[in-house]
Design a protein around this nucleic acid. Structure first.
Lengths: 204, 204, 204, 204
DNA sequence: CATGAATGAGAATTCATTCAT
DNA sequence: AATGAATGAATTCTCATTCAT
């Protein structure tokens, strides 16, 4: 059972992670200082270190928490018992919606795709953040593979296909987020799904 | 006429930019220090400042030089007097080939897509680096638009389409670069083009 | 009410400013490094930046604090309700005494009379330090003017007179400070006052 | 006999010293860089080192050359075969005139009065620049002493008197130089001499 | 637990000086 | 002799991390 302490603790952790995301969204990964994150979270700098070993861990865990939410939604979509097209549409809709609701996460999401810093730090980041991307992509690749076997889609390298779809859709989402009036989510989802399924070619 | 000094100067600038690209490729944008760049280039720290006002200018100019080469190749492909499919194929082949030859550039390319740091720096980076991406994307968007008008491809938002294509293909290239034995370039180009033109759907 | 933190903070600020003055007294304005000041104050380099934005502010505030003390003493003398001669004597005695007690301040006092460095820094220094000199001189000039109107002294340009008196007396104080055994303060005060009032000419 | 080379050499040295003085006048002692001095002189940085061992020597020699001119003029005045009052008036007139003609020298003159930097540098500066000040002051002190013995002026410490006169007059000259329209030189000379001779006191 | 003052390693940048041409 | 590109020591300032209160 959760004690009151546990609740307070979880709340603290969540506040700090939220603050981290907001600051990174504002300043970018490398310009986000512990001081600014602490201020944003309304706690003292030292407090952060009670819950996170160091800056790297803070960033990683923040990333991890957020991407789990994203993946949960996308997974739910991909695990629906429907045809491939519906799955993809649902997954893309989930992704677009998630980033609409969590604009702050986008910067972090982009920043951690490629590890930075000393070899040591790169290794560490690779160990904690890359798997998330990989798992995420892997799930999509599996769905693609199943669809191929079911004869619903063409036989192509499922992993590369997944990467293509993920980054292509991410680009359109980035475009949404940087626009002042992004327009209907549905329209972008349609575009993404349409591109994935049929490409650009005109057919009679 | 180029004097000997001009040649030496150009060579220095090139060496330093190359070193910059290698270090950024290794450590990432924010972890690339002037000292390490200098060491990599085989010059003293101070020497870099003879050719570049400050770190930001060094990075920008390095980026600028490299992306001009990339764009020149892609532009040449897109300006060929052939059908849309050939253009796209040539452009994607050019992109894949360029990054195969300039693996180091990739990190830099990815890093500068989203400005970082203080507001002042973000503004500066936006002014010098973003236009390059935009121009690059705009050119593709224009080609897409023309193809739409020519009835070669479907009518869709050309700008978003361009972003989708650029990032989707970038993802596959990133995949190539991180693999030990990336396989044939042609195969990846085929995959990219195939996805762009026809998407994943199977057709009888 | 002063909290304990306020006291500690004031103490820190005072220690750092004292150290600054000592180092400048030893090495001169431009050779006084943050590192040496920190060492002298017995704190880390970074600590100084907790209390002062940058080196310029440290120097300015240090100067400001010290000169306020000096001016307070001189002002008190000049505002006494006595004749001109007594005022001048008291003011000069105060000045001599102050610099005897604050030998370290002298270098700083001399250095900031004329702004140095980049135009930006010169402007800044002019804005913060010059007014102190000016105000100080202006007060003396006013006293001189009043004495002229009261018929106590001759009619001469009061501002230039003030400058003459200030720098002339400063010269004698500098002489005191560089000597190993400076002799009686009173003797120097007498000399200064005598010069100011009667000049060198012999009278029967 | 002077060879053509000697002439060229002297000219070079003079140009560099003039440039040094102008740059120091503009930026102040510590902000005057070798590069800016070289640019101002129209020579390459390296050239300066053909004529001066290092920056310190350049500054010292520049100072030395200029102050010799100043002292020559003042000495000439003080060695005239006239009464004390005329000597002093002539000397002060010479000083005011000199700084009017050599405004650039003023900054340097002020800067070197008190040695700066590492102990080593301070020692060196003391050895080369202080004697000039001292000699200059000593000469005045001697004249004062003679006047005392001749019964022309009161018996006071001649050295301190000299310092008082020198700095007091310097203050008025500084005032002249910082004003846009400094007014008649003669008026300032009168003021200085009047102060020196008679002080401020009104006499019936 | 929470705090935030203190720390000091590390980064960018400057500039006197050297030396090959 | 003159040059100015190259050097690297020295300086300022930042910021993740620690620890006494």
């Amino acid at each position: 059972m959760k004690t009151k302490e546990d609740v307070v603790q979880e709340f603290r952790i969540q506040s700090i992670q939220d603050a981290t995301m907001r600051v990174i969204a504002r300043k970018g990964m490398s310009a986000a200082t512990m001081q600014e994150i602490a201020d944003e979270a309304g706690v003292a700098k030292g407090t952060i270190y009670l819950y996170f070993r160091d800056r790297d861990e803070l960033v990683e865990k923040t990333f991890d928490t957020a991407i789990r939410h994203l993946m949960a939604r996308i997974d739910a979509a991909l695990e629906m018992n429907v045809g491939f097209e519906e799955k993809i549409r649902a997954a893309m809709a989930a992704k677009v919606a998630f980033f609409s609701e969590n604009r702050e996460f986008f910067r972090l999401y982009i920043s951690l795709r490629i590890p930075e810093g000393t070899p040591e730090r790169q290794r560490r980041q690779k160990k904690t953040c890359q798997p998330q991307y990989r798992t995420s992509a892997q799930k999509l690749a599996t769905v693609l593979e199943q669809a191929m076997e079911a004869g619903e889609i063409r036989r192509l390298d499922p992993w590369k296909l997944a990467m293509f779809i993920i980054e292509g859709s991410t680009a359109i989402i980035l475009e949404r987020l940087t626009q002042d009036s992004p327009g209907e989510e549905a329209a972008d989802v349609d575009l993404i799904v349409s591109m994935i399924l049929d490409g650009v070619r005109k057919r009679s």
